[in-house]
Amino acid sequence: MSPVGDPKQLEVFVRRKAFHAANGGQREVLRDFSLTLEAGKIHALVGPSGYGKTTLLRIIIGLDRDFEGWVRLPPETKIGVVFQEPRLLPWRSVLDNLKLAAPLAAVEDLTKLADDLGIGDHLHNFPGELSLGQARGVALARALAIAPNLLVLDEPFVSLDEALARRLASEVAMLVERRLVTTLLVTHDIDEAIRLADHILLLGRRPAEIVGNIDVTLPRRAMTADYAAKTKAQIGAILAETSV
């Protein structure tokens, strides 16, 4: 049993997760994998493509139950999710997309959130009329609109131009920090992880395991260039050591 006041928000243990391959065999993606998230902190899960990051997220958010192991969430956890693709309803306006996901939220709050994420002028557009960056903004707004206490983001800033990605990322970090939302951010961008996270989890080897767990003692606005460079060097050393 966890003691009272335990700041853990989420624990997941995957003894084994495998997919059936087309040739009839099995491809093992995760084995004896465990992960703990600290309440109210931003965790960046960094790892190369194809290492099972999305698979892990799907297990955490309950979309994939076909695995050996368990997921432990505090009761009444509200999970906000941003998928790798925006997954908006193309036949509903941006505002309706937000409202349908968060029917209890006040329209003013939704509008404010949309403004913060740079899509305030597009509330009455259909998703097909948005750029990828704007669509990502809507997906982020939708996840935040439900006032989640766990936020799960699957490479939400990928294939955006650098400036936009940075702006969106720092907006999200600010919102999340203010509301103390436990956050799991998947990315393969080490710099992004250093800029945003309280904890950086490095994914390596196959089946995937966590090869490094770095606590960022000067996160986000407290970060100095010097500290960022040191952290990056530390990550580089771990990755060099574990790669074969």
């Binding site: 958010i61 999710v81 998928f83 997954r87 309803l89 036949w91 029917p103 939708r142």
Partner: peptide
């Protein structure tokens, strides 16, 4: 993908039918 989205956002069945499936 949209069905999964509706699931994780815990949309009630009326919403799923009217706004996700019917369109």
């Amino acid at each position: 993908g949209l069905e999964e989205m509706a699931t994780v956002f815990a949309m009630p069945w009326q919403t799923r039918f009217k706004h996700v499936m019917l369109p």
